[in-house]
């Protein structure tokens, strides 16, 4: 145990630099996946054939490709097609696109759960499609969508470790590097696990808060 604490004080500063990248990747891909997911979901429920068909197809394609392959593609293949991304950019883009499919399905479920009467009432006072979405449907859908959204956040935090496969020196990769140079596997990976757990706890509490609030009304 003493050895563990000694290792911890030694490795923590290096691991913290990994934490910073983990947070950047998570927040970046969270924002991107939320924005894209909302676009896919709105296209899907737009009632316009081409849009909903495109969105449904795209979601299935994205869902059918493993995240790690998506990352390899962006980081290793895109340069051959003339688009060179930094590892960080590729990680955020790849995770953002991969998760946009799950975000979209979650948002769609939330939107479709809203009573049709709400949409008719909005139309009956002269609202157009977009205004109906913005003023009537989305504000109500948010409550339904938030608890699963929180779960997606936790999954994204953990899946940000996949960025290590394309050389982003986030927490998991930093841990692996230290472990392979010091052979202190137990200390290092225990620390890494604890640090992921520590970062998830606020998110878990947030989900619980969302669920309580959703159950209220």
């Amino acid at each position: 145990m003493q050895a563990f604490w000694r290792d911890a004080t030694e490795f923590l500063p290096i691991l913290m630099s990994g934490v910073a990248l983990t947070v950047i990747v998570t927040i970046g891909s969270l924002l991107l996946s939320t924005a894209l997911g909302l676009v896919w979901a709105l296209m899907r429920v737009s009632g316009i054939g081409i849009f909903s068909g495109f969105s449904a197809g795209l979601i299935n394609v994205i869902r059918g490709i493993p995240i790690i392959v998506m990352l390899f593609y962006l980081y290793f293949v895109m340069p051959e097609l003339g688009l060179t991304l930094t590892a960080l950019e590729a990680a955020i883009l790849g995770l953002g696109i991969a998760y946009s499919a799950y975000q979209a399905e979650n948002f769609r479920a939330g939107i479709e759960a809203i009573d049709k009467g709400q949409i008719e009432a909005a139309q009956a006072i002269g609202m157009g499609w977009w205004q109906t979405m913005r003023r009537v449907v989305l504000p109500q859908a948010i409550k339904i969508v938030l608890p699963p959204y929180g779960n997606i956040m936790i999954m994204m935090l953990k899946d940000s470790s996949q960025a290590s496969t394309i050389t982003v020196a986030e927490l998991a990769l930093q841990g692996k590097l230290i472990a392979s140079s010091t052979f202190k596997n137990t200390s290092v990976f225990t620390l890494v696990a604890l640090m992921y757990l520590t970062m998830s706890i606020p998110l878990i509490l947030l989900v619980r808060h969302f669920e309580k609030r959703a159950g209220h009304k």
Partner: peptide, 28 residues
């Protein structure tokens, strides 16, 4: 031509007054 529905269809996330002013403010 306004409409009143069988199941009211008030916007549950807005107060009674906000429901009433929604059309005048945001449509008209």
């Amino acid at each position: 031509v306004s409409m009143v529905f069988q199941r009211f269809n008030l916007f549950p996330h807005r107060t009674a007054l906000e429901n009433v002013i929604e059309g005048p403010v945001y449509v008209k």
